[in-house]
Amino acid sequence: MKLLTELNRGLVGENPVLRLMIGLCPALAVSTSAINAIGMGAATSFVLIFSNLVVAAIRKFVPDQIRIPIFIIIISTFVTIIDYVMQAYTPELHKSLGVFIPLIVVNCIILGRAEAFAYKNPVLNSVFDGIGMSLGFTMALLSIGSVREILGAGSLFGYPLFNQLAAATVMILPPGAFITIGFLMALLNKVENRVQ
């Protein structure tokens, strides 16, 4: 039961993007299309889950004074691994995500969860926390990416939905990201108020 709470937290109540408003830089920059959003979500999830796992596993051996440098070594190791793996297996996706893959290192969701959760909790709870946060992040990115791709390019996952001339290019550009995330946050608040 406890594990389920860890999992749920990241989805709605403490959704990193739509609630805590952290990790906004990749969330806004890469969510120009649904496929980019999924790719970024998957890469970040890999790093987040494994860094939570490792940080929780070694937390007893890590001296307090140097915990942050050690977190960063762990996180950057996983980021570099996913960077190599994506270059090898999904070169197209890797190219379209560009510099935002190496920048996962400084995604504050990951360091934040290592410091606030994994460093103080057992391995299994930390893994579930990582999965919950990852799903929350990926779902937020996917909803932003889908809305922007539909309105801005007239397609979803690359499949054309309507005449592209009717699409509003602004939605693909940076302002579209801010407009979309604003509306999604409002929607989430509304839904949660209803539920309560």
């Binding site: 001296p63 004074q65 140097i66 050690i70 070594i73």
Partner: peptide, 10 residues
């Protein structure tokens, strides 16, 4: 000791 721990992680 701190330096040693950090080195091992690296």
């Amino acid at each position: 000791k701190l330096a040693a721990v950090l080195t091992i992680f690296c």
